[in-house]
């Protein structure tokens, strides 16, 4: 299953809820303000990094760039992808849960 999260972990528990729901082997894509959840060196980094063994986490690169961030600010193991990568993730997973 593909999960998307579009909220910053600093204002919403969406990412935390998502990661506690996501089964091992799921894909989680951070989009919009959700990309802040992928930052290394933040107050939320440790629990996000902990989830990386179980689920694959991606961050939408155009949303990072728009916020003055780049892939090298992400927690190691989180991959930056473009909209084409978003489409590929949506195809590769048989269902999608958008955590709104």
């Amino acid at each position: 299953m593909l999960h998307t999260v579009n909220k910053s972990p600093f204002e919403s528990s969406s990412l935390k809820t998502c990661l506690s729901f996501a089964k091992s082997g799921s894909d989680v894509l951070l989009i919009e303000d959700g990309v802040y959840g992928g930052l290394s060196g933040s107050a939320h980094t440790s629990w996000v990094a902990e989830a990386l063994g179980d689920v694959r986490v991606y961050a939408l690169e155009p949303d990072l760039k728009a916020r003055g961030l780049s892939g090298d600010r992400l927690i190691p193991g989180i991959e930056a992808v473009g909209y084409d990568g978003f489409v590929e993730l949506a195809c590769a997973n048989d269902k999608i849960q958008n955590w709104l």
């Binding site: 299953m1 729901f21 996501a22 089964k23 269902k95 999608i96 849960q97 958008n98 955590w99 709104l100």
Partner: peptide, 13 residues
């Protein structure tokens, strides 16, 4: 609930 979610075809939020 996570198991139930996994059984679905379409999830609307």
């Amino acid at each position: 609930l996570s198991d139930l979610m996994e059984e679905q075809d379409i999830i609307l939020n």
